[in-house]
């Protein structure tokens, strides 16, 4: 193990480490802690210039205000409406593409795989004008469907990379055995491989959820207005309305950040497995 386990070090070093941990954490999260604290300050504190001290009292009402006086509730609902279908769509499609690319040998197998991988890394801007155009032509501009369709397609690239490598690491004998038994390919996918893919499905679901929830670029390109915009784009326009009312901006930010954060803490192990791209095993 590297570095040498702290337990094998002198007592002084151990004590220093125990102190350094929380101090480092607080420094690391200082901007976030500042925002959390600001979100609980009454407006009077801000006008009196109490920007950094403790709040004079905990103004949970800021959170109520954010929901009552702004459409943030709608924005959050829109975010869910975009995110959940995208997760289902991208994971479903990539289960199939990953299966095909991992199990079968056919011409262009690697080419198709590499197109998925490369496409997943291209700059969004090279897609922007044509995708916006296409969405307009389909009559889906400024709709949840239009945004989700694009996200499904784009996320399929990353998900295919992940799924294909995951399935490739499964023991091939299982599939061979099923074939010898005369099980059809579709049934092999459904009854043999899919049950083994559960951890991969979980990892991708959390990851795609976070990616899509946090997307800002496509939200601004493909939607506008309260009825369709997800919370990232919504927060940006609210920020314009709440000039200098930092307690509201802070409360809004925290509300917008909460769903992926909760998701992360609930499914941490899967999340991290997904992020390492299955490459650092």
């Amino acid at each position: 193990m590297f570095p040498r386990p702290i337990q094998q070090r002198p007592a002084a070093t151990r004590a220093a480490y125990q102190v350094a941990l929380p101090v480092a954490l607080i420094l690391w999260l200082l901007p976030l802690l500042g925002v959390a604290m600001t979100s609980l300050k009454p407006a009077a504190d801000m006008t009196q210039g109490n920007y950094f001290g403790w709040p004079s009292h905990l103004a949970w009402s800021n959170y109520a205000d954010v929901f009552r006086n702004s459409p943030i509730g709608w924005y959050i609902l829109n975010s869910f409406k975009v995110t959940i279908p995208t997760v289902i769509g991208a994971v479903a499609l990539s289960c199939m593409t990953g299966f095909a690319l991992a199990i079968y040998k056919f011409r262009f197998n690697l080419v198709i795989f590499f197109i998925f991988v490369a496409g997943n890394f291209v700059p969004f801007q090279i897609l922007m004008v044509p995708v916006r155009d296409l969405t307009l032509k389909l009559g889906l501009y400024n709709t949840i469907t239009g945004l989700a369709l694009f996200h499904v397609a784009f996320q399929t690239g990353f998900c295919t990379l992940f799924m294909r490598n995951f399935i490739k690491s499964l023991p091939n004998e299982l599939i061979e055995a099923a074939r010898v038994e005369g099980v059809s390919e579709v049934r092999i996918f459904w009854y043999v491989v899919l049950p083994l893919m559960r951890p991969a499905i979980a990892a991708l679901s959390v990851l795609v959820f976070t990616f899509i929830w946090n997307d800002y670029f496509w939200a601004t390109v493909l939607t506008n207005g309260v009825s369709t915009q997800p919370v990232t784009a919504g927060l940006y326009s609210l920020n314009g309305q709440w000039v200098a009312q930092w307690q509201l901006v802070s409360a809004g930010s925290i509300v917008a950040a909460l769903p992926p954060v909760l998701m992360f803490f609930a499914m941490q192990r899967h999340f991290i497995a997904g992020l390492t791209l299955g490459a650092v095993k």
Binding site: T97, V122, T156
Partner: peptide, 17 residues
């Protein structure tokens, strides 16, 4: 089978990416 499994995802990716 591989064609069938790859087609839906590949088609979406082709059109949108």
């Amino acid at each position: 089978a591989p064609l069938m499994f790859v087609a839906p995802g590949a088609l979406m990716f082709l059109v949108y990416v």
